[in-house]
């Protein structure tokens, strides 16, 4: 084993730090999701459903907390035949 290998072998703390930073960034976003994101998801889905037929899974909402800026990402998959659904909002509300 060369000298670099000898030193690297014991440097497990930086690995621990990096793993924690990645993990906690993820966990905070999931746990921070709580009621706010669930509520947002429901209400945004309801608004979209008024105008086009859309699957529940087609609306994805993500929130990222950064040091200076937080972002709310709303991803809606609009199906090809979405337009057809526009004239019949009543059928959408009836199905809810």
């Amino acid at each position: 084993m060369n000298l670099m290998g000898f030193f690297r072998k014991n440097s497990s703390a930086p690995v621990a730090r990096d793993r924690l930073q990645v993990l906690l960034a993820h966990e905070r976003s999931v746990i921070g999701k709580n009621d706010l994101l669930a509520t947002l998801q429901e209400e945004i889905l309801a608004v979209i459903a008024k105008h086009i037929t859309v699957e529940r899974d087609a609306v994805q909402i993500k929130m990222d907390r950064g040091a200076s800026v937080s972002t709310l990402e709303i991803d809606v998959e609009v199906p090809f035949d979405a337009k057809k659904a526009i004239p019949r909002p009543s059928s959408v509300s009836a199905s809810v």
Binding site: N10, S11, S12, A13, P14, A16, R17, L20, Q21, L24
Partner: peptide
């Protein structure tokens, strides 16, 4: 051990 990078440093824990 923290100096030898075998243990998380206090600074690391504080930053996280």
């Amino acid at each position: 051990r923290a100096t030898r990078n075998e243990m998380l440093k206090v600074e690391d824990v504080l930053e996280i």
